[in-house]
């Protein structure tokens, strides 16, 4: 098997482009989400995304026209719930996740019976990506990259200490809202390839792995970005070799890195 075989399939090229761009977005947004204890938002959004995709399929409309508004709206709701920080916030997210999942499963089953459709949504398929997904992911990645580049210091301030950031005049609410919105779009774009059950790993693993070793915000961000890109490429290649779903291969690669970094971190701290 040669790398050129891997790239000789057009769907592989599409998957690689969309995946790498989605990985960039996930890694950058993930650092902020994980550090602010909002990891569950990514997970909740992917389940809502599954429900929305399922309903769109059954209704026979373009999946993104339903999924994008529904998931973006849910992102705002989940953010508000998480920000309140009250007991029951995480329970509320679990409630929304499972409800959306159940509605999606009902919708698909009533229409066609549980079969490949559901399996594809849950565990992802690289065949699902079209030319328009490639264009969308380029646009999204450029916007997210610019957002991070231009507001890097403000994002750091809001992530580290929202109260202080607000006191110095940073519009923390705006950054939270934008982060939630970008996360929602990234999840919708990435979930058909990664799978509804696995897309949140792309958000959570790279920052957590980076934090095993890196000790400053800048190094965590850069390391998370590199890890995300590398795990995606390696995972996609793995699944191509073994004929497994891409999402699973990528998450397993993420897990291997997490364990390696954890061991390295533990040794360093000794």
């Amino acid at each position: 098997m040669h790398i050129s075989d891997f790239l000789s399939y057009p769907f592989m090229v599409n998957a690689l482009i969309v995946g790498l761009l989605v990985s960039v977005c996930c890694a950058l947004l993930g650092v902020s989400l994980v550090l602010r204890r909002f990891s569950m938002i990514g997970d909740g959004l992917s389940h809502v995304g599954f429900g929305a995709l399922a309903i769109a399929t059954v209704a026979g409309v373009a999946p993104l026209t339903v999924a994008v508004p529904v998931v973006v709206l849910s992102a705002f709701i989940l953010l508000r719930i998480s920000e309140r920080g009250r007991i029951g916030g995480d329970a509320a997210i679990a409630l929304i996740s499972t409800s959306a999942l159940a509605i999606g499963v009902m919708a698909v089953s009533m229409n066609s019976g549980i079969n490949t459709d559901i399996s594809n949504y849950m565990f992802g398929s690289i065949l699902a990506l079209s030319r328009s997904d490639v264009i969308l992911s380029v646009v999204l990645a450029v916007i997210v990259l610019l957002f991070f580049l231009f507001f890097y210091h403000r994002i750091f301030a809001v992530t580290f200490d929202e109260t202080f950031a607000r006191a110095t005049g940073v519009k923390a609410g705006l950054y939270n809202t934008l982060t939630a919105m970008f996360t929602a779009l990234t999840v919708v774009l990435g979930m058909r390839m990664m799978g509804a059950l696995l897309i949140s790993a792309l958000i959570i693993f790279p920052p957590l792995t980076a934090m095993r070793i890196c000790r400053t915000f800048r190094t965590v961000t850069v390391c998370s970005l590199l890890l995300s890109l590398f795990s995606f490429t390696a995972g996609l290649f793995l699944s191509f070799l073994y004929g497994t779903p891409a999402g699973a291969g990528i998450v397993v690669t993420d897990l291997v890195f997490f364990l390696l970094f954890s061991i390295a971190g533990a040794i360093r701290r000794k």
């Binding site: 750091f156 580290f160 202080f164 950031a165 110095t168 400053t216 915000f217 800048r218 190094t219």
Partner: peptide, 12 residues
């Protein structure tokens, strides 16, 4: 939180 002293101070 992973942050260096200088990253935090300058955010003021």
């Amino acid at each position: 939180f992973p942050a260096s002293v200088s990253e935090i101070v300058i955010s003021g």
